[in-house]
Simulated scan of single mutants.
Amino acid sequence: MEPTAGWKRGERFSHRGDVPDSPGWSDEQKETLDRMRAQLRELSTAVVDHPHWATVPRESLVEDRMQLKKQTRPAEPDDLA
């Protein structure tokens, strides 16, 4: 996010060669990141605190949450076969 000085190959660990200076992020990009992080926290809290989880037996809570997590991921090509 913040400006960073670049370096020449050999000065640091870089397999790509020279690394140019990074100008950092604009104020708009920083504000977008802050907004998206706040939204992620809000949505995460809504899922974790949802009343549904009070109905799930304690011993299967983690397994059920992991299953929900897997269901929301895009299908892998192998899963479609």
Rank of each mutant, 00 (worst) to 15 (best):
D34G: 02
K69S: 14
R37G: 04
Q29H: 15
V19R: 02
M1S: 11
A38E: 06
S26C: 13
D79A: 15
K69A: 09
K8V: 12
E11H: 15
V62E: 02
E63W: 05
R16G: 09
H15G: 04
D34T: 15
A38T: 12
G24A: 10
K8A: 10
G17T: 04
A81T: 10
Q71M: 11
Q39S: 06
A54G: 03
A46C: 06
R58D: 12
Q39M: 14
R37S: 07
V62S: 01
V47T: 08
E42K: 12
D64L: 08
Q29V: 14
W53D: 00
L33G: 03
P3L: 11
S60I: 13
D21G: 11
V56H: 02
G17W: 08
E11D: 09
L33V: 11
A75H: 02
S60C: 07
P23K: 15
A38F: 01
P77C: 03
R65K: 02
G10P: 04
D49M: 07
T55V: 05
L68T: 04
R73D: 01
E28M: 08
R58N: 11
F13Q: 10
H15M: 10
W7P: 00
E63V: 13
P57K: 07
D18V: 02
Q39L: 04
W7E: 01
R35D: 03
A38H: 03
H52A: 11
D27W: 10
D49Y: 07
W25K: 15
T45K: 04
T72L: 05
Q67S: 06
R35S: 07
M66C: 13
G10R: 06
V47W: 02
P74G: 03
L33I: 11
P20F: 06
E76K: 00
H50F: 04
R9K: 12
P20S: 03
L80F: 01
R37I: 09
P23H: 13
H52I: 13
E31L: 15
T32H: 08
D18W: 04
S26D: 12
E42C: 07
R41N: 06
T32I: 08
E2K: 14
L80S: 00
Q71H: 03
P23E: 07
V62P: 00
D79C: 00
Q67V: 11
P74W: 04
D49F: 10
D21Y: 13
E63G: 01
Q29A: 15
S60L: 09
K70Y: 12
P3R: 10
P57I: 10
T32N: 06
M1T: 08
M66S: 03
E76G: 07
Q39P: 10
G24S: 10
K70R: 14
T72H: 03
E2L: 14
G6W: 10
